[in-house]
Design a protein around this nucleic acid. Sequence first.
DNA 1: TGAAATCGGACTATTTAAGTCGTAGTTTAA
DNA 2: TTAAACTACGACTTAAATAGTCCGATTTCA
Lengths: 136, 136
Amino acid sequence: MLQISKKVEYGLIAIRHMALQTGGCCTTAKEISDRYQIPFTLLAKVMQSLSRSGLIIPRQGVYGGYILTKSPANIKISDVINAIERVPQVALMQCETETEDSCTISHHCTIKSPLLKIQQTINNAFQTMTLQEILY
Amino acid sequence: MLQISKKVEYGLIAIRHMALQTGGCCTTAKEISDRYQIPFTLLAKVMQSLSRSGLIIPRQGVYGGYILTKSPANIKISDVINAIERVPQVALMQCETETEDSCTISHHCTIKSPLLKIQQTINNAFQTMTLQEILY
DNA sequence: TGAAATCGGACTATTTAAGTCGTAGTTTAA
DNA sequence: TTAAACTACGACTTAAATAGTCCGATTTCA
Ligand code: SF4
Ligand code: SF4
């Protein structure tokens, strides 16, 4: 439980790789896929997610690829997570991700508020760490 | 992602309930199941896990049930989690739960150490909060 | 025009979580 | 001593999330 998804890991590896690329224009999904042995088609999807969220911008065509839009210091780890995961936050509890009563016992729940505190701590951890910090 | 399991939630609700019971000897699984609308057979399993780990002791027979063994201040949230989950810790990454090379790209991974830092923060959150704190 | 890249969605497979069932064993009150 | 009220354990089923694939389309540039 509480395991981070492969997609997010792949996304972090990819975006870190891009941040380290100094010269040249674009980084392609293929390049990253080869370098880190990540399944290409899956990585492609992840890149599309990152692209949709604006963290990177895509360029199609022969010499295409992706370009990082911000400086690493301005990209939070949580930005990457939110770009990739459908649920736009780290949600420790079901009642936080969906409607209140998607949890069958929400009316009898006695542990929601303490768990929220812990969730806040976790969110904070992902929000304070930036891409810059994972470069070296 | 990063969602806590129902079993753990049920376990927390149950053990908190037991901590609040002042008089009488035992608290039964049925009683808790009724009170919080938790599926009985599933809760029974959870109680067995808690029992195996020593947090509560079972008493069979007609007036049986479970008894809390420690004071709430001495029970950490992480104790409850570890009792219930097969993986005996909050493990953000696959490579932490199983063998190093259960992750197909562990040789090319560039994000392990920063993620470990975050994991430590999360672990700390679960280890410092006690049952006492979630009573009221 | 064709190769190389992204795009989007539908699809399958695998794994994990959630919940159930059946049977056996223990204790105690009537 | 027997029936009721429990726990104990493991196999099982179902449901849902994750991981990964496939294909047809679009864009770009030599
Ligand atoms: S059990 Fe409580 S904390 Fe968990 S999902 Fe339901 S309402 Fe939320
Ligand atoms: S990608 Fe890295 S951090 Fe994630 S499981 Fe593999 S080795 Fe561990």
